[in-house]
Amino acid sequence: MSSPSHTPPRTGQLKPKTDWSSVVLAPVHFIMGLADRPLRLLQKRAGIGGMAAFFLAPNMLIFGVFVLLPIIINLIYSMTGGSALFLSERSFVGTDQYAKLFDCKSYLDPMSCQEDAFWTAVGNTFWFVVLQVTLLILFSLITALILNRELMARSFWRAVFFFPVLLSPVVVGLIWKWILQRQGLLNFALYPMGFEPYTWLSDRTFAFAAAVGVSIWAHMGFYTLILLAGLQAIPKDLYEAAEMDGTKPARIFWRITLPLLMPNLLVVVVLALIRAVQVFDEVFVLTGGGPGTSTLFLTQYIYETGFVSQPRNAGLAAAASILMGLVLVVLTLVQLGIGRKNENKGKR
């Protein structure tokens, strides 16, 4: 190992200053000195490839214990039955839990399924993802386009849109619950205009719309920020050239902005999709999954089945979470694919 190079001392200084960095780094150098010989020995024996494995091992160990192992345990749980918690006390049922989840006369009619709540949750999650992601991307894009213009107090407006992202999901849920409940702010505001108080969250259609709306409000700032960064990376001379050619603003958007923003947009879409499939916290606080099961989503179904229902059914909850995990794996692979594609484009 080569010794670290030192910058030569500056001339013209009245008093020589203590080199604090060398003082701070002294223990590091000492430890590295101690480790130098054993590491050289290890490299000699294990080779370059072995050294890579050696340095990756701590990370892989953490990943294995906290990510891989729980997934494997979850998979095993999904093949067991009974209400006991310990695997040793649970009976092996093979794929029964999956068969139970898929026991349906028609997948489009949840009521024809043995686990109707699961398929209701799947249907709700599907529509939530479609609506929430579409509207979220649309609003984020519009907001980013506006915030990218020369506005008065632009930084202030950027902060305003980003602020809900900083709130805890429970706080988001509670704020909107206070607004939408029968004695809430919305009815308070509408009453002087002659509207009778209405229990918005007891209305199945409105409750679903509220779940979508609140979720968009809470997360829009994050995606706006990513899109804003993408917009700012587009070279200004392209716009100047288009303007000189007399191109209409709509054409500029479709021909310059959107194509050049596409890599960011694709990342945002995939991230929003993954997040939407996992929807739980703010909606759980806002509607509790009701009215009936109209805002019951997959994550809540898994939580209720594994922890709330009497007796608890950890096996069924594990099977449902494995299926949900598979969907997320597909979405993550798409995201990775897009990332690599962008990387290759950048290299070219």
């Binding site: 509790g288 009215p291 099961t293 209720e304 709330v308």
Partner: peptide, 10 residues
């Protein structure tokens, strides 16, 4: 209102 304010056994 109370009965439709949640899903499941809550």
């Amino acid at each position: 209102d109370v009965w439709v304010s949640a899903a499941g056994q809550s």
